[in-house]
Amino acid sequence: MNALKELGNYSSLLYQALRSSTEFSTYRKNLFQELVKVGYDSVPIIVLVGIFTGSVMTLQSAYQLESAFIPLSTIGAIVSESILIELAAVISSLVLAGKVGARVATELGTMRVSEQIDALESMGFNSVSFLVVPRVLAGILMFPVLYIVAAIFGIGGGIAAGYFSGTVPPSDFLQGARMYFYPWNVVFGFVKMFVFGFIITSVSCYKGYYARGGAEGVGKSTTNATVLSCIFVLLADFVLAALLL
Protein backbone atom coordinates (compact mmCIF):
# COMPACT_ATOMS: atom_id res chain seq x y z
CA MET A 1 0.00 0.00 0.00
CA ASN A 2 2.75 2.34 1.07
CA ALA A 3 4.84 1.26 -1.88
CA LEU A 4 1.99 2.03 -4.25
CA LYS A 5 1.64 5.46 -2.73
CA GLU A 6 5.35 6.06 -3.17
CA LEU A 7 5.15 4.89 -6.76
CA GLY A 8 2.28 7.28 -7.33
CA ASN A 9 4.18 10.20 -5.82
CA TYR A 10 7.27 9.29 -7.80
CA SER A 11 5.31 9.12 -11.03
CA SER A 12 3.61 12.44 -10.40
CA LEU A 13 6.96 14.06 -9.66
CA LEU A 14 8.27 12.68 -12.94
CA TYR A 15 5.19 13.91 -14.73
CA GLN A 16 5.69 17.35 -13.24
CA ALA A 17 9.33 17.25 -14.27
CA LEU A 18 8.41 16.22 -17.79
CA ARG A 19 5.81 18.96 -18.03
CA SER A 20 8.16 21.61 -16.73
CA SER A 21 11.12 20.44 -18.79
CA THR A 22 10.10 23.04 -21.37
CA GLU A 23 11.00 25.87 -19.01
CA PHE A 24 14.57 25.75 -20.17
CA SER A 25 15.40 29.26 -18.98
CA THR A 26 14.60 28.25 -15.41
CA TYR A 27 17.07 25.42 -15.24
CA ARG A 28 19.64 26.29 -17.87
CA LYS A 29 22.18 27.52 -15.35
CA ASN A 30 21.51 24.68 -12.97
CA LEU A 31 21.77 22.18 -15.79
CA PHE A 32 25.34 23.16 -16.57
CA GLN A 33 26.18 23.11 -12.89
CA GLU A 34 24.75 19.60 -12.65
CA LEU A 35 26.42 18.44 -15.83
CA VAL A 36 29.70 19.41 -14.24
CA LYS A 37 28.89 17.77 -10.92
CA VAL A 38 27.56 14.56 -12.44
CA GLY A 39 29.93 14.30 -15.38
CA TYR A 40 33.14 16.28 -15.07
CA ASP A 41 33.55 15.73 -11.33
CA SER A 42 32.87 12.01 -11.60
CA VAL A 43 35.53 11.36 -14.24
CA PRO A 44 38.36 10.58 -11.76
CA ILE A 45 36.40 8.00 -9.81
CA ILE A 46 35.11 6.43 -13.01
CA VAL A 47 38.65 6.21 -14.39
CA LEU A 48 39.65 4.44 -11.21
CA VAL A 49 36.67 2.10 -11.35
CA GLY A 50 37.39 1.33 -15.02
CA ILE A 51 41.06 0.56 -14.52
CA PHE A 52 40.47 -1.71 -11.59
CA THR A 53 37.53 -3.51 -13.11
CA GLY A 54 39.50 -4.23 -16.27
CA SER A 55 42.69 -5.30 -14.56
CA VAL A 56 40.97 -7.51 -12.01
CA MET A 57 38.89 -9.10 -14.76
CA THR A 58 42.02 -9.85 -16.78
CA LEU A 59 43.98 -11.33 -13.91
CA GLN A 60 41.10 -13.48 -12.80
CA SER A 61 40.20 -14.66 -16.29
CA ALA A 62 43.85 -15.50 -16.91
CA TYR A 63 43.90 -17.49 -13.69
CA GLN A 64 40.68 -19.32 -14.46
CA LEU A 65 41.42 -20.07 -18.09
CA GLU A 66 44.92 -21.34 -17.57
CA SER A 67 44.89 -24.11 -20.14
CA ALA A 68 46.98 -24.99 -23.12
CA PHE A 69 43.89 -25.41 -25.27
CA ILE A 70 42.49 -21.95 -24.69
CA PRO A 71 44.28 -19.27 -26.69
CA LEU A 72 45.29 -16.18 -24.73
CA SER A 73 43.19 -14.03 -27.02
CA THR A 74 40.09 -15.54 -25.39
CA ILE A 75 40.94 -13.61 -22.24
CA GLY A 76 40.98 -10.37 -24.17
CA ALA A 77 37.66 -11.27 -25.74
CA ILE A 78 36.07 -12.11 -22.38
CA VAL A 79 37.39 -9.03 -20.61
CA SER A 80 36.55 -6.50 -23.27
CA GLU A 81 33.14 -7.94 -23.96
CA SER A 82 32.22 -8.12 -20.26
CA ILE A 83 33.37 -4.57 -19.77
CA LEU A 84 31.53 -3.18 -22.76
CA ILE A 85 28.32 -5.04 -22.17
CA GLU A 86 28.04 -5.09 -18.40
CA LEU A 87 30.78 -3.97 -16.08
CA ALA A 88 31.49 -0.49 -17.44
CA ALA A 89 27.82 0.33 -17.06
CA VAL A 90 26.80 -1.48 -13.90
CA ILE A 91 29.83 -1.02 -11.67
CA SER A 92 30.10 2.63 -12.64
CA SER A 93 26.42 3.09 -11.93
CA LEU A 94 26.67 1.48 -8.52
CA VAL A 95 29.55 3.78 -7.67
CA LEU A 96 27.67 6.77 -9.06
CA ALA A 97 24.57 5.81 -7.08
CA GLY A 98 26.73 6.47 -4.05
CA LYS A 99 28.38 9.58 -5.39
CA VAL A 100 25.71 11.32 -7.43
CA GLY A 101 22.61 9.80 -5.85
CA ALA A 102 23.63 10.59 -2.30
CA ARG A 103 24.62 14.14 -3.20
CA VAL A 104 21.38 14.84 -5.03
CA ALA A 105 19.24 13.38 -2.25
CA THR A 106 21.12 15.32 0.43
CA GLU A 107 20.98 18.58 -1.49
CA LEU A 108 17.28 18.39 -2.16
CA GLY A 109 16.53 16.97 1.29
CA THR A 110 18.34 19.83 2.99
CA MET A 111 16.61 22.36 0.79
CA ARG A 112 13.29 20.77 1.66
CA VAL A 113 13.70 20.71 5.43
CA SER A 114 15.23 24.19 5.57
CA GLU A 115 12.26 25.49 3.54
CA GLN A 116 14.48 26.51 0.64
CA ILE A 117 12.16 24.66 -1.72
CA ASP A 118 9.21 26.56 -0.22
CA ALA A 119 11.20 29.75 -0.62
CA LEU A 120 11.76 28.96 -4.29
CA GLU A 121 8.11 28.20 -4.80
CA SER A 122 7.04 31.31 -2.96
CA MET A 123 9.25 33.41 -5.20
CA GLY A 124 7.33 32.02 -8.12
CA PHE A 125 9.81 29.35 -9.15
CA ASN A 126 8.76 26.00 -10.40
CA SER A 127 10.90 24.09 -7.95
CA VAL A 128 10.64 20.83 -9.88
CA SER A 129 11.85 22.52 -13.02
CA PHE A 130 14.51 24.34 -11.08
CA LEU A 131 15.85 21.41 -9.05
CA VAL A 132 14.69 18.06 -10.41
CA VAL A 133 14.79 18.56 -14.17
CA PRO A 134 18.45 19.66 -14.44
CA ARG A 135 19.59 16.81 -12.19
CA VAL A 136 17.72 14.12 -14.08
CA LEU A 137 18.79 15.58 -17.41
CA ALA A 138 22.39 15.69 -16.25
CA GLY A 139 22.14 12.03 -15.29
CA ILE A 140 20.68 11.04 -18.63
CA LEU A 141 23.25 13.04 -20.57
CA MET A 142 26.38 12.40 -18.57
CA PHE A 143 26.08 8.72 -17.65
CA PRO A 144 26.62 7.58 -21.25
CA VAL A 145 29.65 9.87 -21.39
CA LEU A 146 30.97 8.25 -18.24
CA TYR A 147 30.34 4.87 -19.83
CA ILE A 148 32.84 5.75 -22.53
CA VAL A 149 35.38 6.68 -19.88
CA ALA A 150 34.78 3.50 -17.90
CA ALA A 151 34.92 1.29 -20.99
CA ILE A 152 38.10 2.80 -22.38
CA PHE A 153 39.91 2.72 -19.07
CA GLY A 154 38.53 -0.73 -18.33
CA ILE A 155 39.93 -2.23 -21.50
CA GLY A 156 43.11 -0.20 -21.10
CA GLY A 157 43.44 -1.46 -17.52
CA GLY A 158 42.88 -5.00 -18.76
CA ILE A 159 45.62 -4.68 -21.37
CA ALA A 160 47.97 -3.13 -18.83
CA ALA A 161 47.27 -5.79 -16.22
CA GLY A 162 47.80 -8.55 -18.78
CA TYR A 163 51.07 -7.00 -19.87
CA PHE A 164 52.52 -6.23 -16.45
CA SER A 165 51.54 -9.54 -14.92
CA GLY A 166 52.95 -11.34 -17.97
CA THR A 167 49.79 -13.37 -18.46
CA VAL A 168 48.39 -11.92 -21.67
CA PRO A 169 50.46 -10.01 -24.21
CA PRO A 170 48.67 -6.87 -25.45
CA SER A 171 48.63 -8.15 -29.02
CA ASP A 172 46.76 -11.32 -28.04
CA PHE A 173 44.44 -9.34 -25.81
CA LEU A 174 43.60 -6.94 -28.61
CA GLN A 175 43.21 -9.69 -31.15
CA GLY A 176 40.59 -11.37 -28.98
CA ALA A 177 38.94 -8.11 -28.10
CA ARG A 178 38.64 -7.19 -31.76
CA MET A 179 37.48 -10.59 -32.87
CA TYR A 180 34.47 -10.39 -30.55
CA PHE A 181 33.82 -6.69 -30.80
CA TYR A 182 30.20 -6.12 -31.73
CA PRO A 183 29.07 -2.51 -32.06
CA TRP A 184 25.70 -3.59 -30.66
CA ASN A 185 27.40 -4.23 -27.30
CA VAL A 186 28.43 -0.60 -27.17
CA VAL A 187 24.94 0.54 -28.11
CA PHE A 188 23.58 -1.71 -25.38
CA GLY A 189 26.02 -0.20 -22.89
CA PHE A 190 24.88 3.29 -23.86
CA VAL A 191 21.24 2.36 -23.47
CA LYS A 192 21.98 0.88 -20.07
CA MET A 193 23.80 3.96 -18.86
CA PHE A 194 21.04 6.19 -20.16
CA VAL A 195 18.50 4.21 -18.14
CA PHE A 196 20.72 3.97 -15.07
CA GLY A 197 21.41 7.69 -15.15
CA PHE A 198 17.70 8.34 -15.23
CA ILE A 199 16.99 5.88 -12.41
CA ILE A 200 19.69 7.11 -10.07
CA THR A 201 18.99 10.81 -10.45
CA SER A 202 15.22 10.54 -10.49
CA VAL A 203 15.02 8.23 -7.47
CA SER A 204 17.45 10.42 -5.54
CA CYS A 205 15.57 13.58 -6.50
CA TYR A 206 12.32 12.00 -5.42
CA LYS A 207 13.72 10.89 -2.08
CA GLY A 208 15.32 14.27 -1.46
CA TYR A 209 12.43 16.36 -2.72
CA TYR A 210 9.98 14.68 -0.35
CA ALA A 211 12.35 14.44 2.61
CA ARG A 212 11.06 15.55 5.96
CA GLY A 213 11.97 15.42 9.59
CA GLY A 214 15.04 17.63 9.89
CA ALA A 215 18.63 16.46 9.64
CA GLU A 216 17.69 12.91 10.57
CA GLY A 217 15.06 12.84 7.86
CA VAL A 218 17.59 14.00 5.30
CA GLY A 219 19.97 11.25 6.38
CA LYS A 220 17.22 8.69 6.06
CA SER A 221 16.16 9.81 2.62
CA THR A 222 19.78 9.87 1.46
CA THR A 223 20.26 6.29 2.59
CA ASN A 224 17.01 5.27 0.95
CA ALA A 225 17.96 7.05 -2.23
CA THR A 226 21.28 5.22 -2.52
CA VAL A 227 19.90 1.83 -1.63
CA LEU A 228 16.88 2.15 -3.90
CA SER A 229 19.04 3.45 -6.74
CA CYS A 230 21.30 0.41 -6.48
CA ILE A 231 18.38 -2.00 -6.35
CA PHE A 232 16.64 -0.40 -9.31
CA VAL A 233 19.86 -0.28 -11.30
CA LEU A 234 20.29 -4.01 -10.83
CA LEU A 235 16.65 -4.67 -11.65
CA ALA A 236 16.83 -2.49 -14.74
CA ASP A 237 19.99 -4.27 -15.78
CA PHE A 238 18.13 -7.54 -15.66
CA VAL A 239 15.10 -6.20 -17.47
CA LEU A 240 17.22 -4.61 -20.20
CA ALA A 241 19.20 -7.78 -20.67
CA ALA A 242 15.98 -9.73 -20.99
CA LEU A 243 14.49 -7.22 -23.41
CA LEU A 244 17.41 -6.31 -25.62
CA LEU A 245 19.65 -9.37 -25.79
Binding site: L35, G39, S80, M142, I148, F181
Partner: peptide
Protein backbone atom coordinates in the same frame (compact mmCIF):
# COMPACT_ATOMS: atom_id res chain seq x y z
CA UNK B 1 32.94 28.18 -16.48
CA UNK B 2 30.63 25.23 -16.14
CA UNK B 3 29.76 25.36 -19.79
CA UNK B 4 33.43 25.00 -20.73
CA UNK B 5 33.89 22.07 -18.36
CA UNK B 6 30.87 20.30 -19.78
CA UNK B 7 32.06 21.02 -23.28
CA UNK B 8 35.50 19.62 -22.58
CA UNK B 9 34.11 16.48 -20.97
CA UNK B 10 31.68 15.74 -23.77
CA UNK B 11 34.14 16.55 -26.54
CA UNK B 12 36.90 14.42 -25.05
CA UNK B 13 34.51 11.55 -24.46
CA UNK B 14 33.29 11.80 -28.03
CA UNK B 15 36.80 11.79 -29.46
CA UNK B 16 37.85 8.93 -27.22
CA UNK B 17 34.72 7.00 -28.18
CA UNK B 18 35.32 7.43 -31.91
CA UNK B 19 38.98 6.56 -31.63
CA UNK B 20 38.23 3.60 -29.38
CA UNK B 21 35.54 2.37 -31.70
CA UNK B 22 37.77 2.55 -34.75
CA UNK B 23 40.54 0.93 -32.76
CA UNK B 24 38.34 -1.97 -31.73
CA UNK B 25 37.07 -2.37 -35.27
CA UNK B 26 40.75 -2.42 -36.21
Amino acid sequence: SNEVKVGITVLLAFIVAVVGFRFMRD
